[in-house]
Simulated scan of single mutants.
Amino acid sequence: MIRTRWPAASVKQFAQPNAAEVAKMEQFINQTLWGSVQNFDGTVKKSVYFYQPDLVPDYDYPSSINWGNWWSWNQAASYATDRAYDYVHVIAAYWSLYRVARNYPDLVKTHTWEWVGYADDGLMEETVIRYLLDDLQREGLTANATLVESRMRARENVWAGERYP
């Protein structure tokens, strides 16, 4: 449940932007998303939260949580970049602020609409990626649109060759 809050908060901004909320989203993207959730090489971690008390002895893990569950990942499992679902969340956050910056430039303070350039992975023909592609084409960013389309086709070709894609 926690992982769905920040994508929802960011997507809400392109439909109903609020200056104070946009400022918080810009701060989140610059201080948490880029360089923490998303690595500098563009890969995306499953989580930045992990359960490994020996690595953070001064952190007080909540005792109300059952840390024996499947989602109680250690640091290596949390920092793994092998789950495509996570990429869509990052793309949605960047795309949403692109839309705010494009349509309400006075609301953004950190980056212009041209700054957003993340379009590496996703899952199938994810709706947000389709919207991103539409906007790239509308902006005349042909090279970027071609890159997104080629990566989508590459994934489709891999899945078409799998017995159970």
Rank of each mutant, 00 (worst) to 15 (best):
Y49V: 11
Y94K: 00
T142V: 15
A76T: 13
A101D: 03
F14D: 05
E21H: 05
V88F: 04
V158Y: 08
W159R: 15
R155S: 07
A119Q: 13
Y131R: 15
G161M: 03
Q13F: 04
P53H: 05
E126R: 01
E126G: 06
P57G: 04
S63G: 09
G117M: 00
D106F: 10
V48T: 13
H89M: 07
N66D: 15
I91V: 15
V128N: 13
M152C: 07
K109Q: 12
S78P: 05
K109F: 03
V108Q: 02
V48L: 07
N157R: 15
T32S: 08
A23T: 09
N66H: 12
A76C: 06
R83C: 11
Q16L: 14
K24G: 06
L136S: 03
A80M: 02
D82V: 04
K109C: 00
W159E: 12
Q75G: 10
Y104N: 12
I65K: 08
M152H: 07
W6T: 10
A145M: 10
Y104R: 10
V48Y: 01
N18C: 06
V44R: 04
A160V: 02
A77H: 09
P57Y: 00
A92D: 06
G117T: 09
A101T: 05
M25E: 04
S36V: 06
T110D: 12
T81S: 00
Q137E: 13
Q38A: 10
V11D: 11
Q27P: 05
L107D: 06
T146V: 12
N103D: 15
A20Y: 10
G35Q: 04
W95A: 07
D58M: 06
Q31P: 04
D134S: 08
A119R: 15
N30R: 14
S64T: 12
L136D: 03
R153M: 14
K24D: 11
F14S: 02
I91C: 07
D58Q: 11
W71G: 04
N74A: 03
Y49N: 10
W159H: 12
D58H: 06
A119V: 07
D60K: 11
R83S: 12
Q13R: 01
Y87C: 01
T127D: 13
N74E: 06
Q75F: 09
Q31V: 02
E126K: 04
L97C: 06
G117S: 11
R83N: 15
D134G: 02
T142P: 00
V56L: 13
E21M: 06
R5P: 01
